[in-house]
Amino acid sequence: MERLFNGESVSILLFLIGVYGLLARRNIIKTVIALAIMQSAIILFFLTINYEDGRIPPIGDVTIHTAVDPMPQALMITAIVIGVAVCS
């Protein structure tokens, strides 16, 4: 059960909910909300790929094996900024 509910499956589910919202609702506010749901799904997906327990933030003096990959976080900050700009 724990294996099934990982970030990937939850984010795909959220993404599909967003797509359903776009398909079935004609109200433009709800369309924007559905878009925001899709954005959140993507952010969740990026943050949970390549996740492993026990990794530390890549700040200061760490070796490459114990630190998490900082790239998805950096990408998602940009994506959040873009999402805020277009959804509001």
């Binding site: 967003g18 369309t31 954005q39 993507i42 997906f45 990026f46 790929i49 390549n50 998805p72 277009v86």
Partner: peptide, 22 residues
């Protein structure tokens, strides 16, 4: 709105690409 939706698809695909290739 249509192009934003398509770009959401793009970003999701990009996540998978990053997962596979790094």
């Amino acid at each position: 709105l249509t192009n934003l939706v398509s770009m959401a698809f793009f970003l999701f695909g990009l996540g998978y690409i990053y997962k596979i290739f790094g």
